[in-house]
Design a protein around this nucleic acid. Structure first.
Lengths: 333, 333
DNA sequence: ACTTAGTATGCGAACGTTTGCGGCAACGTT
DNA sequence: AACGTTGCCGCAAACGTTCGCATACTAAGT
């Protein structure tokens, strides 16, 4: 069961491989009659072009590299799904790597992409990445690069993001509008741009309304349920119980839920909660969690569209797309 | 910023490309002294072998193709994560496709894999796939194939599965042990092997204990929250309210939760619930959902291990691995 | 009969790598 | 002195494709 090649077709028709190649790419130099013949036998032999040979010759592939911190995060898996969707529509294949939130691993991933001569790269950087030098390799080699969600500001590249500042500001303002006075923020590391922006949005909203700042910030990669639980726990022990919480993501919010219920407090009567991302889980906790919807699939699609456009038009100037978010109001507020 | 090639090294050292190639692959015919020289200049020039050229020559790649129904499902994204983990340890790259539960799309995906000369394929079939002919193409071409979770029984290939029958039987038996008498099953299409097995496990357990069969089976791809909600809804309207439910997956169970609470019934006092998969969400509903833990990441890892082993040992006989499941008991029972 | 132009095809090199075969020293063996 | 052995290396072909150039043939314009 060998693959038919252009040479097989050529032999069968007693013509040269060059003519077959041209016929298949509909080159005007080839007679229509010959083209038909070639196309017919190509079908008979189940010919399909060898992308490897083609890549070697042209020194370019139709492969898109995707680097994400962790595939199993709902946000990332949705984004990947969107990327795959668009890529396959444009006949690109994707090769996938995860950095596991690890800087060294991310460097290995970028090297792999370069070795494989990817046509372009879509990436969301790891929490432990403070330095974008490894991404500069792409721009040096003129490989188009699109960041999404967690972008790297010291690299000139296209970006698909949300307005974290405004989303946070709006969410907290909503809590203010509901009459909440002691609004806490359970935030992420300020070293990560998106978390820092959400934190600033929170600050802006509480300051503007002359409310106290009440925050628990977590460090690198500590953005899971247990950290939300612990933050709530320490506020309670410090006798600083808030009447509302804006959490940096849904997991942290859900963690807080558990501790709040353990304390016998009511959501939203005693404490209102807002999360971030609109994870699948947000709809099914009781009461359902109000959260900022971050349309992951759209972000992925947009990233892929920008990338493919850049690849095919060979443009250089990077674009930035800001995807609108929406505050989904549910039972927790 | 061009890539250094073997020829560049050869020119710099005034030796032939063949010697460089052999030196880099540590061939005994090359003097140790020369090898050192080659390795040194290779480093200087940032040489890294071109996998495309290598593939063209050898007609094999170190790429693993992965086909899943939908990337954003937690089970699949975890499995992919496991696959990526193992693959990258063995220096394989993965190319990723989703079938979107669509038979035609799945066929396109398999063709893509063949065109790209993948070294092997890991797949979980779509719900609408009744026929495995497109997977036969792999075996015809001696491309190793490993199915996981949703396997295709008419194709001879390795398989990584769980014991759906036993898992279901044990889960339902547990409900029986808790004194439940009217145990319903919210199941999937019997055309899909895994759902059929879970259904049979349920039947075995209720029959063995002379309990009534009470079931709501859904058709193709209808395994989301709303279908659980609807199934519960119709049982209530038919006045057939059960005292326990074994759901084919966690989403369906969660859907049932909502309707049960709407009806003013208590979980687990009035109705006990068991799901399947141990989705992330199962821990955070109230009360937390008892469910069958299906260790997705381990399944993915195992699939990758078997595949790589088959690729490198060039063995032919397919293996089947059964990954043990565990009933995670939580508040819903 | 001559160039001129156009049309359709083939030739051969190239992309970067691997590998069988053969060359050629230098050495030891008879 | 003739031969075999061994160690180290180069030549050249091959993988499948593309493309610049050359070539052959036809048809038309002087």
């Amino acid at each position: 069961m060998k693959h038919a090649t252009i040479v097989d077709i050529a032999k069968k028709l007693s013509i040269s491989p060059s003519t077959v190649s041209r016929a298949l790419s509909d080159h005007p130099d080839v007679r229509e009659e010959t083209k038909d013949l070639v196309r017919k036998t190509a079908k008979e032999l189940f010919y399909s072009p060898n992308p490897i040979a083609r890549s070697l010759k042209s020194n370019r592939t139709s492969t898109i590299g995707v680097i994400v911190p962790e595939i199993e995060h709902y946000f990332f898996s949705c984004a990947i799904s969107g990327i795959e969707e668009v890529a396959s529509n444009f006949n690109y294949t994707i090769i996938l790597c995860q950095s596991n939130e690890n800087y060294e691993r991310e460097i290995e991933n970028t090297n792999l992409m370069i070795r494989h001569r990817v046509a372009g790269v879509i990436a969301s950087i790891s929490l432990t990445t403070k330095n974008g030098d490894h991404f500069q390799e792409f721009t040096k080699r003129r490989i188009p690069l699109v960041f999404f969600d967690r972008v790297c500001d010291d690299v000139v590249a296209s970006k698909v993001v949300i307005d974290d500042f405004k989303s946070a500001f709006d969410a907290v303002s909503y809590l203010v509008g509901k009459g909440r006075k002691r609004i806490a923020h359970f935030g992420g590391s300020k070293e990560v741009a998106i978390y820092s922006q959400r934190w600033k949005g929170y600050l802006e909203a509480v300051n503007k309304n002359s409310l106290p700042v009440l925050e628990k910030l977590m460090t690198d990669g500590e953005l899971y349920e247990e950290h939300g639980y612990n933050s709530m726990d320490s506020l309670i022990k410090e006798n600083q119980t808030p009447d509302a919480i804006f959490a940096v993501n849904d997991s942290v919010a859900i963690g807080a839920y558990v501790r709040i219920k353990e304390a016998g407090l009511k959501i939203p009567d005693d404490i209102a909660l807002i999360g971030f991302s609109n994870d699948k889980i947000a709809r099914f906790v009781q009461p359902a969690l109000t959260t900022v919807d971050q349309p992951a699939m759209e972000i992925g699609k947009k990233a892929a569209e920008i990338l493919i456009d850049t690849i095919e038009k060979r443009t250089i100037e990077p674009k930035t797309a800001v995807i609108p978010t929406q505050l989904i109001i549910r039972g927790s507020t």
